[in-house]
Design a protein around this nucleic acid. Structure first.
Lengths: 190, 190
DNA sequence: ACCTGAACACCGTTCAAGT
DNA sequence: ACCTGAACACCGTTCAAGT
């Protein structure tokens, strides 16, 4: 007869993420995760495959945690909110975040964020043939920036980094943001 | 009495890089590196400290391998050459390269590349107060792009990626490259 | 269906010892 | 000064067994 499961996939991923945040990625072992859950290491295999799949699942788990902005907001605010959300996620999970750069962006979690960026770029009037490319380069920059920031590569202060980020994002968007800011203000003015 | 060393730091780093390239970063263990050198694992500690320092040294070792362009070349060609060199290095060492995003950019190897970019940006007429920031954002993008490309995050073909890269780099440079290309051609035309 | 126990081939690192 | 051997507390994973 079957008996009720003591752990499930979500519990394993939650425990793994806590461990990675508290003690670093190097401390993430099947045995340490199992310890935290109060089971033997072998109990994990049924739920997450093996260690590589555990790490793959962890990346997806982190990506799903990134909040998406209200689609009713003006597109510059949506882009800004998503970029800041990625930076916040990177700072919250500095050891796990860089793994994002090592996985094909084809998972549901990656597609979820990408589609929201597509919508904002279309709202900005980016021509359809340019939408995918603009998203690829923007997300590459945001991932690289967030990973660098969380990993401690930058040696300037936080205010300088905020200014750098806006400056670079504005350039990648080719002046769209400045134009749109004016458009949004014009709307508000009536 | 002392006896002649059988291995040195360079030999350890070379063996480590070969191992990482052939079998991945997960295969890099003190024991496996020692095996490849024909010594016991404990012999490595004198030369590279411990495993964390071995990995730190490995990143620096890879960075020193990036070729710098002839300073006599026009600046757009120098920037282009350095960017392509970073992509080549990333593809050659896909497992080691992402570690660059997790280390402060204060090592000699990082400074070496940075100074060459500074010189090119000054040659391009970037105002002095903007030079450091432009370099930070450009290198963040190039690192993120190269790591993504080498790590398999992109799912488009190589020609598309080349086009994407030029497009984004041109935008980050704020039209400097297009202007300079014309300037260089005008010079050549006499 | 879900978890355990024992086992195997690995790890990083310390410490005392050899030359 | 440089390397070794033995030892300790870890790894990931398989396999057969228990409920």
């Amino acid at each position: 007869m079957s008996r009720p499961p003591r752990i499930d996939r979500a519990a394993v991923l939650t425990a793994t993420l806590e461990l990675a945040d508290e003690k670093g990625l190097a401390a993430v072992s099947m045995r340490a995760v199992a310890d935290r859950l109060g089971v033997t290491p072998m109990a994990l295999y049924r739920h997450v495959g093996d260690k590589q799949q555990l790490l793959d699942g962890l990346v997806e788990w982190v990506l799903r945690e990134v909040p998406l902005p209200d689609p009713a907001l003006p597109w510059p605010e949506r882009l800004e909110a998503m970029a800041q959300a990625m930076r916040t996620t990177a700072r919250r999970h500095p050891d796990v975040f860089p793994l994002l750069l090592r996985r094909p962006a084809v998972t549901p979690g990656a597609a979820r964020v990408r589609e929201a960026v597509y919508a904002a770029l279309r709202g900005a009037g980016v021509p359809e043939p340019d939408v995918a490319r603009t998203e690829r380069m923007l997300s590459t920059f945001v991932l690289g920036f967030a990973a660098s920031e969380a990993g401690g590569r930058f040696t300037v202060d936080a205010a300088q980094l905020d200014a750098d980020f806006s400056w670079a994002a504005g350039r990648l968007l080719g002046g769209l943001v400045d134009g749109a800011d004016r458009a949004v203000e014009a709307e508000r003015a009536g």
